[in-house]
């Protein structure tokens, strides 16, 4: 069972939810795909860390072979190549590693070299295997790191929780595309509704079953995100209260479900609901 947790903006509670769901599951794999600022590891503090480099290919030019035809310059939609006087120059930080320039070069003047864009770290925290992707600052895209992370599909007995980057851009699409189910985390504000709407649209494009967890809920207060779900018939999986104690533990890097029985119960109920939904979706799809 592969569950992706996403939201249209940062700070809604994606990491709170995915970390605590992974913690209450008997055996789980937690994958932090928020590679620009991964923070799940701050909660898990995983042991026995193994680090693996992630490389992409970038073009290297043999100026002797280049005849200045500029087929590569015209082809590159990111404009990473420029031909100045009699030299082909590559802007490495703009290149998206598509390999098109090398394929098109008739003179075979372009070869490819490895460029390290970040790392993947794996470790263990009690019942949870923790995978973290870390993108180097300044790199244009975290997609290659997310691809590397998601090569680990989890063991048979493991529940997989994918903690997505915020928003609905290509890094999020890469993170959710093979998920069995998506949990959308929403805040009880009008701004929260706007952000929920973005990811709601995304999961429907991908035809992935979904449900919403309403975070920071206040008793007897208006909840525009809940109204939005009811209006659009979006399943509500559960609510996380606006709770100072929970907030304090979480800000101190504690996993609330491992700290207090009442929070363990909260997330256990959420996990049960999610598993039921996934089973229901799988059944209705076959």
């Amino acid at each position: 069972m592969k569950i992706a947790v996403l939201s249209g903006k940062g700070g809604t509670g994606k990491t709170l939810l995915s970390v605590n769901l992974a913690a209450v599951s008997p055996e789980s794999l937690y994958i932090d795909c928020d590679v620009e600022e991964p923070n799940g590891h701050l909660f898990f503090k995983p042991q026995d860390i193994k680090t693996e480099k992630v490389n992409v290919k970038i073009p290297q030019v043999d100026q002797e072979l280049c005849n200045g035809c500029r087929v590569c310059v015209d082809f590159c939609r990111f404009n990473a190549l420029v031909y100045v006087i009699d030299k082909l120059i590559v802007f490495n930080e703009i290149c998206h590693s598509c390999g098109g320039c090398r394929l098109l070069c008739r003179k075979k003047a372009i070869s490819e070299i490895d460029k390290e864009i970040g790392v993947v770290q794996s470790g263990k925290s009690e019942n949870v295997r923790v995978l973290t992707g870390i993108l180097k600052p300044g790199e244009p895209s975290g997609v290659p790191i997310i691809k590397k992370l998601l090569q680990d599909e989890g063991q048979e007995n493991e529940d997989v929780f994918i903690d997505c980057p915020p928003g609905s851009a290509c890094v999020v699409m890469e993170s959710i595309k093979d998920a069995d189910y998506c949990i959308l985390v929403a805040e009880p504000t009008i701004f929260g509704v706007h952000n929920l709407d973005m990811v709601y649209e995304l999961v429907r494009i991908f035809h992935i079953p979904y449900g919403v967890v309403l975070n920071k809920c206040l008793e007897e207060e208006e909840n525009p995100a809940e109204d939005y779900c009811l209006k659009n018939n979006i399943p509500i999986l559960g609510k996380i209260p606006f709770d100072i104690e929970l907030g304090r533990l979480n800000s101190n890097g504690e996993i609330v479900a491992r700290k207090q029985a009442k929070y363990r119960e909260l997330f256990q109920n959420l996990l049960n609901k999610v598993k039921k939904e996934v089973q229901h979706e799988t059944a209705s799809n076959t």
Partner: peptide, 15 residues
């Protein structure tokens, strides 16, 4: 022609 580029407009304009 670089004005509508997705990225690298400065590089293409310079070219």
């Amino acid at each position: 022609s670089a004005a509508s580029s997705q990225g690298g407009a400065g590089i293409k304009a310079a070219q």
